[in-house]
C-alpha cells in the first residue's frame, strides 16, 4: 500500500478528466491545497466544478484556474476577494451556487458519511430555501439539503504518516477534513511526511482510510489580511 507520490502531478495522474467535480479544502488562502491546484492548472483539465468555501484571489488558490478558464462552476459561501471571478460571473462565463458556509461543510461531511440528505434550519425564509423541501420537526421548520459526492477531494494537511493518517495545524484545518471525506479519491498535500508510528494515535485528526495519495512539498502559505498590533499599544 504505497500512498506516497513524488510530485503533485504524479499524485493526480489518471484522476483528472474534463467536467469533473472536485471538493477542495481551505478557508480564504489558509490551508488550501496550493500544490495540487497548480498541478491541475498545468494539466489543463477543463469544465471543472469546484466545491470550495472561497475562490482564492486573482493569482493564488482557485484563482489561478479562473485565469485559465478551467472552472465552469463554483459552489462556495463567499467569493469577495477575486476580481477575475466577478468578471467571469457577471459576463455569464462562470456558474455560481452560493451555499451557507455551515451547509457547505455539512454537505461535504454528509456525503463522506454516506448521508444523501439532511434537514437544516439554516436559510429557512431566504433565497437559499427556494425550491427545497420544507419539513417541520417539533414545531420548527427545516429545509432539505443534499450530501455532496465529489469525483476528487484535494486537501492540505500539516503532517501525514506513510499510511495517510493526517494532522492539521491551527486554523488551517477548516474545510479540509470534510472535503477529504466526500470524494471518491482523496489526494493530500502535506508539509511533512513522517514515519508510520511517529504520530500519536490519539491525536490523529483524519484517519488514513480517507486518504489515497499523499505528496510532500514546499508551501507558500500566503496571508490574505495581515493584521498586527504594535507592542506599545499592548502595554
Amino acid at each position: 500500500m504505497n500512498k506516497i507520490y513524488g510530485s503533485a502531478a504524479e499524485a493526480l495522474d489518471g484522476l483528472l478528466f474534463d467536467g469533473m467535480f472536485i471538493a477542495s479544502g481551505g478557508f480564504g488562502l489558509c490551508g488550501i491545497p496550493e500544490l495540487l491546484l497548480d498541478a491541475i492548472k498545468q494539466a489543463g483539465t477543463k469544465d471543472l466544478t469546484f466545491a470550495s468555501n472561497n475562490a482564492g484571489v486573482d493569482d493564488f488558490g482557485i484563482g489561478i484556474l479562473l485565469q485559465t478558464k478551467q472552472v465552469k462552476k463554483m459552489i462556495s459561501s463567499y467569493v469577495g476577494e477575486n476580481k477575475e471571478f466577478m468578471r467571469q460571473y457577471l459576463s455569464g462565463e462562470l456558474e455560481l451556487e452560493f451555499n451557507p458556509q455551515g451547509t457547505l461543510a455539512e454537505r461535504m461531511r454528509a456525503g463522506g458519511a454516506g448521508i444523501p440528505g439532511f434537514y437544516t434550519k439554516t436559510g429557512v425564509g431566504t433565497q437559499v430555501a427556494e425550491g427545497k423541501e420544507h419539513k417541520d420537526f417539533n414545531g420548527e421548520t427545516f429545509i432539505l439539503e443534499t450530501g455532496m459526492f465529489a469525483d476528487l477531494s484535494i486537501v492540505k494537511a500539516w503532517k501525514a504518516d506513510e499510511t495517510g493518517n493526517l494532522i492539521f495545524r491551527k486554523a488551517a484545518r477548516n474545510f479540509n477534513p470534510p472535503a477529504a471525506t466526500c470524494g471518491k479519491v482523496c489526494v493530500v498535500e502535506v508539509e511533512e511526511i513522517v514515519p508510520t508510528g511517529s504520530l500519536d494515535p490519539d491525536n490523529i485528526h483524519l484517519p488514513g482510510v480517507y486518504v489515497h495519495r499523499i505528496v510532500q512539498g514546499e508551501h507558500e502559505k500566503r496571508i490574505e489580511q495581515r493584521t498586527v498590533r504594535s507592542r506599545e499599544d499592548a502595554q
Binding site: 459561501s77 463567499y78 452560493f98 451557507p100 458556509q101 455551515g102 437559499v128
Partner: peptide, 9 residues
C-alpha cells in the same frame, strides 16, 4: 454579490 459566508448559519 460576495456571498453569505457563515451569516445564515
Amino acid at each position: 454579490v460576495k456571498g453569505m459566508g457563515g451569516a445564515m448559519d
